[in-house]
Design a protein around this nucleic acid. Structure first.
Lengths: 192, 192
DNA sequence: GTCTATACTAGGATAGAC
DNA sequence: GTCTATCCTAGTATAGAC
């Protein structure tokens, strides 16, 4: 079952919340905004998320982590040639960030002081998971543990940085070019 | 006269605002928060910024742009060896972002939907200015226009990405290591 | 320039009907 | 599960004294 297409109504709401929170930041999104975006009344939202906005933030953070596990970390940990796994990752990255036009939930949640600490902790952990999963794939391809970690960290840095720079410049090709360059560096045959 | 140490009381406030906005995001910071951080009453704040929070955002954005011009872009455009100019830039970057512990105002303001468009436009422009100033220094060192732009963009991407990743991981050394790597790439003697 | 006091709106959350 | 109506706090902003 896909993390993106669950039958529960709650899952539907969470996907909307995901988009609202990453684009506007947790604090700027009001219950009224969420009500309008989901088409549900305020009370209905509190039915699904009794804890209110903090509850919603945690649900979105968990959803994001599950999505990443399914779409990126699991494929990276599977059998197969490195180049293929990296290509899958980059495709998921491009889709998730809409080619460089959509903000990252992690970055948005990190600067939200009123967001629940649990939610912030969860989204931050995604970055560490990402680097670990990527480093694992590189080790499986023969890189040393240190080199794998260094290269994996550099790749995630390049992706996150390119997203900021591309959105600041309003030029999506900055993002796609950076993804290409990062992919090249990851499958580089040189062994440091 | 330094952009950081101006005599006006307004300038003092702006520096406080700069820190509040980049850490909490524009939307999450209330007038009450600002009042507490500056020690000024609400009415005093409206005396200095008649337009309220949007006015403050624009002042902070202009301040940030001026600071970057003075501390980074001007040195990059001056005479001297490339390695020296890059070192100055990296030192300013490390100071500004507190070694990887403080968020970037640009990234924070970009995801604030209620911030004045003018303020957002100004902070976004800083990224383009930065890349241009850096590319100029690289061209002055003999790089082709295309290679200079590519390398400058990659450096700013690395810095912004490292800030996100380091803050997510809570490990400042990720940031400092990324700065070192970016510096090395910038002064690399290879000509592509 | 800064203060106290106040007006008004918007935001988060709940009660209770259906 | 969803709605309407309501409560209360926090938020932005202003008036007017000093």
């Amino acid at each position: 079952m896909s993390a993106l297409a669950d039958n529960g109504a709650r899952e539907e709401i969470i996907i909307t919340l995901f988009d609202l929170f990453r684009r506007g930041g947790y604090d700027a999104v009001s219950i009224a905004d969420i009500s309008e975006a989901t088409g549900l009344g305020k009370s209905s939202l509190y039915y699904h998320f009794p804890g209110g906005k903090p509850d919603m933030a945690e649900a979105v953070a968990d959803f994001a982590r599950g999505y990443m596990r399914e779409k990126m970390f699991a494929p990276l940990g599977a059998q197969g040639p490195l180049a293929r796994k990296i290509a899958v990752m980059m495709k998921t990255v491009a889709t998730m960030y809409e080619g460089g036009g959509a903000p990252c939930l992690i970055a948005s949640m990190m600067i939200s002081p009123t967001a629940s600490p649990k939610a912030v902790k969860t989204v931050k952990a995604i970055i560490a998971d990402w680097i670990d999963a990527l480093a694992g794939a590189l080790r499986a391809d023969g890189l040393s543990s240190a080199a794998a970690k260094r290269r994996a960290t550099a790749a995630v840095i390049a992706i996150q940085g390119a997203l900021v720079v591309a959105r600041a410049a309003g030029e999506k090709q900055i993002f796609s070019a950076a993804l290409k360059a990062a992919e090249k560096d990851l499958i580089d045959q040189r062994r440091e």
